[in-house]
Every structure is written in structure tokens, then in C-alpha cells.
Amino acid sequence: MADTYTLKEHLWKKLENGPFTMVGLSDGNSHFEPLTAQLDKDQVDTIWFFIGKNNRLAKGGPAAVNFVSKGQDFFASLSGHATVDNNPAMIDKLWSNQVEAWFPGGKADPNLALLRFDIAEAELWEADVSLIGQLKMLFGGTIGPDEAGSHAVVSDTTI
């Protein structure tokens, strides 16, 4: 099994290639919604999201982020805590044309909020099915654990 640093590095690469996630509060009442992850390589235990101040996530609290990679071969379920953190330096650092498309007032848009998601735990799956496993799927065989890919639980995300 890979070490924590390698697992986080792998997750970050997958998120960079397709940053679309489902984010929700862990309050039992909220639905998850699609948001684009904003990554800061200086803060590898934090994922950022631009949201509207009126978004249901703006109240913050225990939250979760679910992610499926572009190739649908990597899955992540992250738990942690969400808070609005409108640090102007971080907004500047993460700002892009894609973000500006959602906030016509730019960085000074009165509805702009930057949601900070601090990762507490992560569960990761890599569906790296072997060639033999792929043949078994094609012809209805049973895939053994050594042919199915990998799974890791990371309960301490610090390096």
C-alpha cells in the first residue's frame, strides 16, 4: 500500500484532470451538488470552491466531497469540515475566467463566497482491473481481489 503522501499526490492529479465533484453538508437534510474543485498545491489538505453567499453550503459545518475521475477508474469519498473563508489573497490566487463567468461582478461580486473544505478523512478506490479481470468481465467470470484494483483509507491527511 502506498504512503499517505503518494495517495494524496495521486488524488490531486486526478482532481486536476477533471475537477468536478459533488459536495454536501453531512447534516442528513442537504442534497449534494456539483461544484468545481479549486486546488492550491500549498494546502494539500484543503479543497476550495467558489459559491454564492446564498448557497446552502455557505452555512458550513461537517461536510463531504465525492469524486469520480474523468476516466471513471478512480473514486474518492472525503469527509471534513466546510467554512466560508473569503481571504482576498486566496480568492486572487484561485481566480480564473471560468470562475468569473459565474460572478459577473468579478472578485468584488457581492454574492461571491469562497468555501474552504478541510479534509479530515479520505477513502480512495482505484479500478485498475487487470487484463485477466477484463476478460472475465467480458465472458461472465468472477473477478478475484487481486484482479480488481486497490482501495485505501486515509484517516490522517497530514504529511
Score class of each variant (00 low, 15 high):
Leu78Arg: 01
Gln72Gly: 10
Leu135Asp: 00
Ala101Gln: 00
Pro62Met: 14
Leu112Ile: 01
Ser155Asp: 15
Thr142Ile: 04
Asp109Phe: 11
His31Pro: 06
Val99Gly: 09
Thr46Tyr: 11
Thr4Ser: 09
Met22Trp: 12
Gly141Gln: 02
Pro88Arg: 05
Leu57Asn: 11
Leu112His: 06
Phe32Gly: 15
Gly141Met: 02
Pro88Ser: 07
Ser150Val: 02
Ala63Lys: 08
Val153Tyr: 13
Asp73Ile: 06
Pro104Thr: 11
Lys13Leu: 12
Ala2Phe: 10
Lys13Phe: 01
Pro19Met: 02
Asn87Asp: 11
Ala113Asn: 10
Glu33Phe: 02
Asp27Asn: 08
Phe20Val: 09
Gly71Leu: 00
Leu131His: 09
Gly106Tyr: 12
Ala82Met: 01
Ser150Arg: 00
Ala127Lys: 09
Leu15Phe: 10
Ala2Lys: 15
Phe32Ala: 15
Phe49Glu: 04
Val154Arg: 11
Asp92Ser: 02
Val153Ser: 15
Ala58Asp: 01
Asn86Pro: 09
Trp12Gly: 07
Ala82Gly: 12
Arg116Asn: 06
Trp48Pro: 09
Leu124Gly: 00
Val129Tyr: 02
Ala148Lys: 06
Thr21Lys: 07
Asp27Gln: 08
Ala89Cys: 00
Glu9Pro: 05
Thr157Ile: 09
His31Leu: 08
Gly140Phe: 11
Ala101Asp: 10
Trp48Phe: 07
Asp146His: 12
Ser26Ala: 15
Ala37Val: 12
Lys70Ile: 01
Pro19His: 02
Ile91Asn: 05
Ala122Ser: 14
Leu57Glu: 02
Glu16Met: 11
Gly52Gln: 00
Gly28Ser: 08
Ala89Asn: 08
Asp40Arg: 13
Asn86Arg: 06
Gly105Ile: 03
Asn86Met: 07
Ser30Ala: 15
Leu94Lys: 04
Gly106Ser: 00
Asp3Phe: 09
Gln134Cys: 05
Ser77Asp: 05
Phe139Cys: 10
Gly141Trp: 06
Ser130Lys: 04
Phe139Ala: 07
Glu9Met: 14
Ile47Tyr: 01
Gly24Glu: 10
Asp73Pro: 07
Ser69Tyr: 05
Phe50Cys: 11
Val154Glu: 11
Thr36Leu: 08
Met90Gly: 01
Asp92Cys: 05
Asn54Gln: 12
Val84Tyr: 13
Gly106Trp: 03
Asp92Gly: 03
Met1Arg: 15
Glu123Asn: 10
Thr36Ser: 15
Asn111Met: 14
Leu138Thr: 03
Phe32Asn: 12
Gly71Glu: 04
Thr142Lys: 03
Lys14Pro: 12
Lys59Pro: 06
Thr4Pro: 05
Ile51Arg: 04
Gln98Gly: 14
Phe67His: 03
His31Asp: 03
Leu57Gly: 12
Gly105Ser: 03
Asn17Thr: 00
Asp27Pro: 05
Leu7His: 13
Asn97Tyr: 11
Pro110Trp: 11
Gly61Asp: 04
Thr4Val: 07
Lys53Gln: 07
Gln38Leu: 07
Leu115Val: 08
